[in-house]
Nucleic acid binder design. Structure first.
Lengths: 221, 221
DNA sequence: CAACTATGATAGTAATACTCTTATCTTTGC
DNA sequence: GCAAAGATAAGAGTATTACTATCATAGTTG
């Protein structure tokens, strides 16, 4: 099948120079995802990345002002992608319950690559979100970065699904809390099932999806 | 009222020298909590702490081998304290539902100081858990540290409450997943309500407690 | 009072997270 | 086909971090 001609455009204050606008920029995105996955975000440095892509630290700094802002870029990209997946899964579906269920499935299962052209490997990015994304907003600068709209993509997803929740049950008083609990919970459980299995009952990811579907169903009943 | 003569003893491989065994050690605990709260864990250094307590870096290093292990010590202490609170809240209560509800209340509300002697300010520590505790286990070393039992205190709490869940409904297939979702969810929502309010509907902490009580009730019905 | 332990004072190191400057290479516009 | 502009490379420099190591001194105990 032909790849879709779509392109995810991250908001411009998340980079210095748009990494999507040059070969080097796309290389930075592609290989940073690989490297962060390999060694973890704390050990990841622009110096190491520059060696991997056979470029220099200073060149990378022309795209991103810090490794932290690169992480924010990647998470934004991820949530825009998820938003797109949810739209794709729910358009032209008439039944509100079905729409919500499809959205919950997108949110609770590992993302799979599909026909989309990009330098970004979604499955690896998905792993980064599970392991590192929390570090993007658990900082002293949350409030000021929030004001600059750095977390907008994530909020958009929560709002979109909260709307689906309200379509199912308009009197439910906590739609955002429910959605963010499901999203964060599903991610945490995936992390736990891999590293701290005593904290979960999820031997397979299926249990996670099942659990959160049940939760949404029962909370809105 | 007389303070209880209890003392929380953190497992010995979480420190080099027991900080509870000397005035300097207790000062390290007390003031590190204060400082981490003030400037955040990333900006927190042993050098800055040594200035606050009018001691030296090298002296602090004699108690903890790194700031990371200090954080693990603090989180362990916290979960042992929570475990104690849950035991206190549930002993001699005959009804399984009431027991579980009391435990959920402990887990979803900000901790309050009570009659307990310690150099540790529980309310501040509670804030650290909300803001920083995730950094204690979201690292490349999770697996090896887990093997050493570094997260045992947390697991104990989850297991204890999972047991209460099973007392209410022994056929519920996901007791651990439910409990860890509630714990982590309540913490996240408290963080969100302060910093990213769009992701929650919790203007007051009461909404959080209410939401998770409802969740447990409905999941086990 | 001797021996031991705890703490202090100080120095040193490799790595990190950048910034800055200068040189070279590649486009593109005319 | 060439000059100017823009992108990238190369390299040096800096303050800070997260330690380690050594030696001196103060306090405590037997």
């Amino acid at each position: 099948m032909e790849p879709l001609g779509l392109n995810i455009q991250v908001q411009s204050n998340l980079y210095i120079k748009n990494p999507d606008s040059s070969a080097l920029g796309r290389e930075i995105l592609a290989k940073s995802i690989e490297l962060i996955n390999q060694i973890g975000f704390e050990s990841f440095t622009f110096k190491k990345l520059s060696q991997v892509i056979q470029s220099t630290e200073s060149s990378i700094y022309r795209y991103f002002k810090s490794k932290h802002s690169l992480l924010i870029y990647l998470t934004s990209w991820y949530w825009m992608w998820v938003d797109y997946k949810i739209v794709m899964a729910t358009t032209n579906i008439d039944d509100a319950n079905t729409r919500l269920n499809k959205a919950i499935t997108v949110l609770t299962q590992p993302l799979k690559k599909d026909n989309f052209t990009s330098s970004i490997n979604i499955e690896w990015l998905d792993r980064i979100i599970i392991n590192e994304s929390i570090k993007a907003y658990h900082t002293v600068d949350v409030d000021s970065e929030n004001k600059k709209g750095f977390f907008q993509a994530y909020k958009n997803v929560v709002n979109r699904v909260a709307q689906l929740v309200q379509d199912v049950n308009s009197s439910f008083p906590f739609p955002h809390m429910l959605v963010s609990t499901v999203i964060e919970g599903a991610h945490q459980q995936r992390f736990f099932s891999e590293h701290l299995p005593n904290l979960t009952d999820a031997d397979k990811t299926d249990a996670i999806t099942q659990f959160y579907h049940q939760m949404v169903l029962k909370m809105l009943a």
